[in-house]
Design a protein around this nucleic acid. Structure first.
Lengths: 333, 333
DNA sequence: TTGTACGCGTTATCAA
DNA sequence: TTGATAACGCGTACAA
């Protein structure tokens, strides 16, 4: 591929002049500008971003580390980040963190090697200290969906416990007393916090949430099917189910229907996330809205600002809100 | 951030030695190797990928240009590419092409400036000639979901016409004679080809496909709803609908249900893509499977190989296959 | 086994 | 308005 030298030689000018026209520099004669532009076109010249990054010490790149492109929830997250990157003319570099601490670390390291000045990181497995260290090393790093007090202003997160609480309260207010949970079997804090919230709401009514009433599996459609089957196998006598996310909920409803249970007449179901899917399930899914796109956009904007030494607000906490649709009804009496 | 010089100075060795241990070079004493490694750790040294790319003339980066991270179909595509990139230890650079020729061009140009040696490109708006030119300039470029005869070996694509044909044939074989289409209003070849296939199958039975029986809208859930409403407004007297994709189909079914039509008892519906969603819709959606993840993986592998001057097969054509689920039944007589 | 020095493609400084 | 030229951080002949 043609370099700036090739262009300079072919145009009979110095590399400095070429560089000036490339960067719309001020001091270059109209004649030369036109000439150089033509030569660039002829030679198919494109400035080498690597060389440029080397000397300018900045590469207009936003790194995103997260786990699963294919999951609608994460896709929405990535979409939000991408929007901000694009509107700021910033390249998007994606690094997959899967779920393990080791891969998450590698994902961040890779981004570090690329010297991308801003990053939004979705990390569940890395320790708080590790993340704090990274945040210190990279001014433009912001955490999404995780709250670490020591670096609170670098975190954009959702109050999961409040979400669990709100879901449970809603069901209670509808008259449900036999409530079961289907949760994620990932060893991260989100499911624990949501469960805490649920438990708290139930306890306030003097209702326990015992082990028997909790089934866990992978947080996707298949997992939802499995967990629902397990619950069924134990003899289902609950009137309502709080499910970890909408993907699982779709699997749950599917199994419920296949086994002759009507939703919501026999069993009510509440999801979490409000992924697009939930509007097209039948019945339409009642769920806790997780404003992930907005959060992702804010995280990306923060990352860009921080990398530019601009200040950001101190608190970026979001609350899930209840979206009432058709999957909840009062229990049969 | 610490450079190789810093490390060399701190360790009291030359940059060459440091470089050797970074790259696991052969000739360096165990003592020095250990020493340097320790210093790198202390200083938090990370090799600068830009500088490295500059000298090695390769940056282990795979560029992906496509339109919509948020769309499950494209998310699956991106997921396939990501898998291959990750398993080959290659960075993923994402460039958004939206739908216009101009943005698609810019997306590719950006990747070009990054000097990523392999790219998988999903371009619908760019002209054949423009893509041929790019393919010539970048040996590791492969096109996905598009077929250009002149560079056939660089294309991974689906036979859309065969898909339309198969869907229509299936409906015909079930006894349907009044078939309508809901299609995408994007000005690209895919909807045209699928429609051609449908028309061809119908004509073989002496059935016309007139304008009245075609409604178009954006290829997503909302678009599906709108198109279905339009069809309804015209007075729906069809027994079966072939819909451009599963997302639209979910919107279509939703509107149908809301208006008292039962699927499939009153109206049969066939989708396209076999996105995960289709398994969780009620009724489960009968659809044409678009093996997009497999195709994306192949495209990524090809791109990597081509960038490495390794040969690839001449033909990469895929056929959609019918997935029978519950949204099609014989017409009422 | 180790170190010196050049070049990768740019930008930016300083003279001219 | 233009042109030499010194960085930027790294890999790698080549020499020691």
């Amino acid at each position: 591929m043609a370099t700036i030298k090739d262009v300079a030689a072919a145009a009979g000018v110095s590399v400095a002049t070429v560089s000036r026209v490339v960067n719309n520099g001020p001091k270059v004669s109209a004649k030369n500008r036109k000439l150089v532009k033509q030569v660039m076109l002829d030679l198919g010249y494109r400035p080498n971003a690597n060389a440029r990054a080397l000397v300018t010490q900045t590469n207009r790149t936003l790194g995103l580390v997260f786990s699963e492109l294919t999951d609608p929830f994460f896709a929405t997250l990535a979409g939000g980040v991408e929007k901000i990157a694009r509107s700021n003319n910033i390249q998007l570099l994606i690094s997959n963190g899967l779920v393990s601490a080791e891969t998450e670390r590698r994902a961040i390291e890779t981004l570090l090697e690329q010297r991308c000045e801003s990053m939004v990181v979705h990390s569940k497995a890395l320790s708080e200290q590790a993340l704090i260290d990274y945040a210190e090393a990279v001014p433009g790093l912001v955490l999404i969906n995780r709250y670490i007090p020591a670096i609170a202003h670098r975190c954009v997160w959702l109050d999961n416990q409040a979400g669990g609480d709100a879901a449970a309260r809603y069901l209670l207010s509808m008259g449900h007393r036999n409530i079961a949970c289907i949760t994620s079997n990932y060893d991260i804090e989100d499911p624990r916090l949501r469960l805490n919230g649920i438990q708290q709401a139930l306890q306030q009514q003097g209702l326990p949430l015992n082990e028997q009433a909790i089934a866990s599996a992978e947080p996707n459609e298949i997992g939802g099917e499995q967990a629902a089957q397990n619950l069924l196998a134990r003899g289902l006598n609950y009137t309502a189910l709080i499910v970890y996310n909408d993907a699982m909920a779709s699997g749950v409803i599917s199994v419920l229907c296949d086994n002759g249970y009507r939703v919501p007449e026999d069993v009510s179901v509440v999801g979490f996330d409000d992924v697009l899917l939930s509007r097209y399930l039948r019945p339409k899914l009642t769920t806790m809205r997780y404003p992930i796109e907005m959060m992702a956009m804010e995280a990306a904007e923060m990352a860009l600002k921080l990398a530019n030494q601009q200040p950001v607000a101190a608190l970026h906490k979001y609350l899930p809100t209840l979206v009432k649709r058709d999957s909840v009804a009062p229990p049969k009496t």
